[in-house]
Design a protein around this nucleic acid. Structure first.
Length: 467
RNA sequence: GGCGACGUAGCCAAGUUGGUUAAGGCAGGGGUCUGCAAAACCCCCAUCGCGGGUUCGAGUCCCGCCGUCGCCUCCA
């Protein structure tokens, strides 16, 4: 079955056919690095990581490019206020970002270009735009001539006149021919801001041009998928399209994918509103898989309301998925129970793929994983073991892995305390044989106080760390 | 004001090219197992914001209304 993907440009799901068979070129807008990344960035990263993993699962070779905006007004502001070098400040947050992504098990993109290292390509592109009549210099700045682009506004579905009327009230920018025009190159205003030599004097790139230049350099004129948060549709992606398509005379991206916003207390979480939870804060308290389940548990295009309760629910859902990986308790390897389990594993695989093929419906896919967990647990209760059992667990691990879930709980044996806990359990087992229930229960309760959960079963006592 | 999205059980949420029983998770209730507990398993728990319309048939299409949210300025 073929993959269908919702395209913001057409507002429809389209059958996905890459330009080159077996190869997908994808560009995702990355962060402006002037502060700690928040879980909204994490959400976006996880969504595109899921997409990339699934594409790879489908057999595509994925060339995935994500930029770091390391030259920007806010970086400059922040740096100057604290007496730092803007590029060094950006460098530090790039490193932080990478650490956080690794902690969230987000695969590193194939290439992560930065504005500060793409200046030549940007200048080249700006020059071409000027040559083509799509941009003009004005006192050291260069502006894109929006009126020269006949299909400007096609992505965000707005017409220039509206943009103009709302813009005109805010800016009285005499340097522009038209108030809807936007900067592709900004002349240097003060000696303290980073600047590079260009045909238009010292200056730095406008915000949108970097992505156009990076796409062109690392992926070519036309790519398969261009992605980002839906808050980037206008003006950022609209302007990228304008620049790239005017420069290259080719479509920028076949498919535009946009994820919904993470909202906190009913509002979009953003740095400017100051209502944010950083990735570091989240990971201080919860595992990476919890966040991934939280994000992939709803559709990527929908807004996601974040609060303590959905974190708790995601935590439970994770524990539930993990229950499917507990060892078998029997060795039954033939019979209807085994057949049922095998059928469930096959069904899970098929349904998982169907869901994911339908515009990366990860929430539906997770549901099918839960169905498989139920079948595995039922089989365990029925005494199924052997290859059929471990095979079904492999399927679970495999499918979860496509979503980027680790599912590995902190292994009980991995702690220094493990030998002592095992010893206590041995002693308690003897106590239970003597039916000294009060003492046995006390032991269990006291261990629970230290986060060690004991579970008695016919085959003995097992323990695990509290979730 | 312009553009767009969303509204499914107590909570999260899938399903909308119309068609047998509206996924799944969490919480809750009942039961099995257990010395007890935990875990697991079994059973129960919605007619899809509201009002019209199209149709043999609509959560799924159309119109209106209400509500929530996003973009229109930097933002994943």
């Amino acid at each position: 079955m073929s993959l269908r993907v919702y395209n913001t440009l057409s507002r429809h799901k389209e059958t996905f056919v890459p330009l080159e068979p077996d190869m997908v070129r994808i560009y995702v807008c990355g962060p402006t690095v002037y502060d700690e990344a928040h879980i909204g960035h994490g959400m976006s990263a996880i969504i595109f990581d899921m997409i990339r993993r699934y594409l790879e699962h489908k057999g595509f070779k994925v060339r995935h490019v994500m930029n770091f905006t390391d030259v920007d007004d806010k970086i400059i502001d922040r740096a100057l206020r604290s007496g730092q070098d803007p590029l060094q400040l950006a460098q530090r947050y790039i490193e932080r970002f990478r650490e956080h992504m690794a902690a969230l098990h987000v695969l590193p993109p194939t290439v992560t270009p930065r504005v500060s290292r793409t200046i030549d390509e940007i200048i080249d592109m700006v020059s071409r735009l000027i040559e083509g009549g799509y941009a003009y210099e004005s006192e050291g700045d260069v502006y894109f001539r929006v009126r020269a682009d006949d299909d400007y506004g096609k992505l965000s579905r707005r017409d220039i006149d509206h943009a103009v009327s709302s813009d005109r009230q805010r800016f009285g920018d005499e340097l522009k021919e038209d108030t809807a025009d936007f900067a592709v190159w900004k002349g240097q205003k003060t000696a303290t801001e980073p600047a590079w030599l260009s045909p238009w004097g010292m200056g730095r790139p406008g915000w949108h041009i970097e992505c156009s230049a990076m796409v062109r350099r690392y992926l070519g004129a036309t790519i398969d998928i261009h992605g980002g948060g839906n808050d980037l549709i206008f003006p950022h992606h609209e302007n990228e399209i304008a620049q790239s398509e005017s420069c290259n005379a080719a479509p920028l991206a076949r498919i535009w994918m946009h994820n919904g916003m993470l909202q906190l207390r009913g509002e979009k979480m953003s740095k400017s509103l100051g209502n944010m939870v950083t990735i570091a804060e989240f990971l201080d308290e919860h595992e990476a898989d919890v966040f991934r389940i939280l994000v992939l548990g709803s559709h990527y295009r929908k807004p996601l309301a974040y609060d303590a309760e959905i974190v708790e629910q995601a935590k439970r859902a994770l524990a539930r998925l993990r229950s499917g990986l507990r060892p078998p308790q029997g060795s039954l390897d033939t019979g209807p129970e085994v057949e049922h389990l095998l059928a469930a594993a096959t069904k899970a695989r098929v349904r998982f793929e169907q869901a994911m093929d339908d515009d990366f419906n990860s929430a539906g896919a997770l549901g099918h994983l839960h169905d498989l967990v139920k079948a595995i647990n039922m089989a365990r209760d029925q005494g199924v073991g052997g290859d059929a059992f471990t095979g079904a667990q492999d399927t679970l691990r495999d499918l979860a892995g496509i979503l980027g879930l680790q599912l590995s709980a902190a292994a009980p044996g991995a702690s220094d305390a493990a030998p002592f806990i095992d010893l206590l359990i041995e002693v308690r087992t003897e106590i239970r044989k003597l039916k000294q229930w009060a003492l046995a229960d006390t032991l269990r309760d006291r261990l629970a106080e230290h986060g060690v959960i004991l579970e008695d079963s016919r085959t003995g006592t097992t323990w695990r760390w509290q979730d």
